[in-house]
Simulated assay, not measured.
Amino acid sequence: MSNDGDREQTLRTSTGVALDYNGDWLAKFDANAVPGSDYNGRLLAFINSQLGTSYDEINGAKYAYATAQSIDGALSFNELGTSTIVGG
């Protein structure tokens, strides 16, 4: 399984749904009542809530999230595979 596949499986395990990749993330955002109107805005809000931070740009937030959540030493969001996503 690729990193994307591992990341998606983590989402599916967490939410109990099996949609496409973006749909799995949107289900995660919905389960955590993450506000926002577009995908990147909701991802940024989700990361900030998970890390207890207030990043204002997505790339720095994704890097911080990957390094904080990685089980296998990911140094970027694209390297993040299986992770410790918490919440509904």
Rank of each mutant, 00 (worst) to 15 (best):
L43A: 10
L43I: 04
K28R: 12
L26E: 13
L19Y: 04
D30L: 02
F46T: 04
L43S: 06
A18W: 00
W25N: 10
K28F: 13
N40M: 10
A18Q: 06
S37I: 09
A27R: 04
A31T: 03
T13A: 06
D24N: 14
R42E: 04
G16L: 01
G16D: 02
L44K: 00
L43H: 04
A31I: 00
A27V: 04
N22F: 06
V17G: 00
L19V: 00
R42V: 03
D30G: 02
D24Y: 03
L26H: 09
T13W: 06
N22P: 09
A33Y: 10
Y21M: 02
Y39S: 14
D20P: 03
D38Q: 15
F29L: 05
V34E: 14
D30F: 02
F46V: 07
A18M: 02
A45F: 03
F29S: 10
T15C: 01
N32E: 15
L44Y: 03
A27P: 09
G36M: 14
D20I: 01
L19K: 08
A18K: 09
Y39L: 13
G16N: 00
K28Q: 12
R42M: 09
K28Y: 15
G41L: 04
S14C: 11
A18R: 05
F46A: 11
N32Y: 05
V34G: 14
D20G: 04
T13K: 09
S37F: 10
G23N: 04
T13P: 01
A33N: 15
L44P: 11
I47T: 05
V34I: 15
A33C: 12
F46N: 09
F29E: 05
G41V: 05
A31Y: 05
G41P: 06
Y21L: 06
R42G: 07
D38H: 15
A45W: 02
D30Y: 04
D20R: 01
I47V: 13
L19N: 11
D38N: 15
A18I: 03
G16C: 00
L44E: 07
A45P: 07
P35H: 12
V34P: 14
D30I: 03
D30S: 07
D24W: 05
S37H: 14
D38G: 13
R42A: 04
D24G: 14
A27C: 06
L26V: 08
L44A: 05
D24H: 07
D38E: 15
Y39A: 11
G23R: 00
N48Y: 07
V34Q: 10
G23S: 01
K28V: 14
T15K: 00
S37E: 15
N22G: 09
D38K: 15
W25F: 12
A18G: 05
V34L: 08
A31N: 13
Y39F: 15
L19H: 05
A18Y: 01
A31K: 12
N22K: 02
A18E: 03
I47F: 08
N48K: 12
T13N: 14
N40L: 11
R42H: 01
W25S: 07
D20Q: 03
P35W: 08
N48S: 09
P35C: 04
N22C: 06
